[in-house]
Nucleic acid binder design. Sequence first.
DNA 1: TTGAAACGATACCTTGAAGGTATTGATGGC
DNA 2: GCCATCAATACCTTCAAGGTATCGTTTCAA
Lengths: 315, 315
Amino acid sequence: MDLRHLRYFIAVAEEENIGRAAARLHISQPPLTRQIQQLEEELGVRLFTRTPKGMELTQAGELFLEEARNIRAVVEQATERTQRAGQGKLGRLDVAIFGSGILGTIPRLLLAFRNDYPEVKTVLHTMTKAEQIEALRQRRITVGFNRMLAPLPDLATELVATEPLLLAVNENHPLARERHVSFRMLAEHPMVLFPTGARPNFIDKVMRLCEEAGFVPKVSQEVGDAVTGVALVAGGFGICLVPESVTVLTLPGVVFRPLQDASSNAHIDLSCLYRADDQSPILSAFLETVRAFRSAHISGKAAGMRSETGWDAGI
Amino acid sequence: MDLRHLRYFIAVAEEENIGRAAARLHISQPPLTRQIQQLEEELGVRLFTRTPKGMELTQAGELFLEEARNIRAVVEQATERTQRAGQGKLGRLDVAIFGSGILGTIPRLLLAFRNDYPEVKTVLHTMTKAEQIEALRQRRITVGFNRMLAPLPDLATELVATEPLLLAVNENHPLARERHVSFRMLAEHPMVLFPTGARPNFIDKVMRLCEEAGFVPKVSQEVGDAVTGVALVAGGFGICLVPESVTVLTLPGVVFRPLQDASSNAHIDLSCLYRADDQSPILSAFLETVRAFRSAHISGKAAGMRSETGWDAGI
DNA sequence: TTGAAACGATACCTTGAAGGTATTGATGGC
DNA sequence: GCCATCAATACCTTCAAGGTATCGTTTCAA
C-alpha cells in the first residue's frame, strides 16, 4: 500500500464516482479503477459496492476512509514538524553557562532567542570552561558561554558582547569615596580574584591590566565565581574587578565604580563556543540571533533601543 | 513521499549504514542512497550527516524517525482494523426488535453474537413490522426481528426459533385449574389479542388456530404487545395466547399452561428480516450466528447444552 | 607512506508498474 | 429500444525504482 492509494481512495470515496475522482486527481479513469481494485485486493476487503450510479462505500470502506484521512493528517504533520526542525525552528538547544552567567547578558540573549524560536527548548547546564569544552566534544551541549578563550582547533567562537570592567568596593572602603577610580589607584589594595579553574581566565586579564598600570595586585582571596567575589567585597575582604553585567547583583554595602582610565583594554569579551563542524540548523539560528543581539545591543545601548524583551527596564 | 521512503529511512536510521540497511531491505546500496537523497530533497531537510563511518541522524532526522515509526504504526492499525471490519468482526449492526422482543430468544441471540463478535456494536431500535420494512429499505437498520411475515421481493428472512404457544390465564380463571388445556376448551372465553398493527400478524395465526379447532374466539381486547396482553390477563380481562418466550415475564396472578393438543400448527416462528441484496460481512456473520444459535438451541434444548452465555441457568 | 578496506555517491542500464487511449459490458432513463 | 453513464478490460507508453560497475574519501594498518 502506498500513500497514493490513500489519496486515490479518498477522492473516489468523496466523489462516489471514479470518473469524477479521476478528473479531480488529473489522471484518467482506468488507472484509478485499477488502483482501487489493487487496494481492495491488498487489504482483502471490499471497500466499495459498485452500483450503476457509481461507487458506494461499504461499512469497512467507511472505516478506512476515516483511517486514510487520519494517516494523511499524520503524514502532513510529520513533514511539517520535520521541516520546522530542519529550519532550526523546532527542537532542543543545550546551552552551558558558567557560574555567574545567569547575570546580565546571557538571560537577555536566551530570551531573545526564545522570542525568535519559541518552539526550540533551551536547556541550561552550569559548567566550568573545561567542562564545557569536554561537553561540546561529546555533543552533550551545543553552545557554551565563556569569557576568556584560547583558540581551539575543533571549536569556534562567536562574540556576544564586550563589557567594561567595574570596580566592586565596600562602601566603607576609601576608594568608595571616589566618584571615578583610576586604575593605578588600585595598587596596594587587597583584591579578590575569580574564577579558580582552567586558564586562561578572567584572572589573567586582571593581572595583565594591573601589570600594564605598573603594579602587581595584592591577592586577598581567589574564589570560584563573581557572585562569591562580590559577596566577599560585601564582607570587607577587599576590592574586586568585575564585568559590568555583575552590577545587576546588589549586595548591601557594595558599590560599583567605573574605572576612569578604562581603555579598550579594560573590557572583557563574552563569547559563545560551539563545535566548528556543527551544521545543526538550530545552532545556526542561535548564532544568527547572537549576531543580531550583538549589533542591536551595541547600537541599542546608544539609542536606548531593544526594550521588547522586558529586561532593559530593570537594568 | 511514499511509505517506501519511510521504510527505507527507518532502516538506514536504525542501521546507521546504507549498505547494511540495503541488505536488510533486500535491495542494493545505490537505489537506497538515492531514495534517501530524494526524501531529504522533498522535505528540504538534511536527515543524516554523512560520516566516513556511516549515516548519523541529525536532530531533524531524529524527530522524523519518531514520526515515521508513528506513521507506520498508524497505517498498520488502519489496515488491521479495516480487515477486521471487512470480515464483519468490527463495526456496527443496527437491529430492530418489536415491542416484546426484549423477552426470551432475541436477547440470548444478541448475546451469543456479541460473544462471537465482541467488536461489533449492536444498536437496538424498537419498531413495528411496517417500520422495520421501511427502515430496512432505507438502510437505517440491517436486520429486523419479526414473528409473521408475508414474503417480500427485496427482503429475505432467516428462521431464528420456533416456539410453542402457551396459554396465559389468571390464576382465578376456571382454566387455571387445568394442568393441560386443550385448544377447544378456549372457546367462549374472552381473549386478549395482540399486536395491533400491520397484517399478517400474530392475531391472524391465533384466529386460524381457533378456526381449525372449530370456534371463533370472543375478543376481549386488542393490545399493542404481549407485555400489555399479559398485564391484562393479570387484571382479569381474559385469556391470552402467547409465545413461550413470554413466560420469562412473571406477573402476579398470571399462570401459563401448555396447550395439550399443541400440534406443529400451534407454534409460532421468530425470524429475522434483512435486505436480500445486502452483502455486508457483518450481516453474514450475524446470519451465521443465527444459524448456529438455531441448531444449538434445538439440539441444546434436548441435551441441555449452550449454557456458555450465562442465560440458560435462569430459564 | 602507501595500500587496503569501508563508506556513500555517481553513471548507466533494465524492468516493472503507473498512466494513457480505445473499447467493452452493464444498467437505467427517455 | 436507443442512448447516456457507469466501471471494467485490453493494450500500449513512459518514467522511476532497482541493478551493476565504478568513483572519491576517509580511516586504519602494514
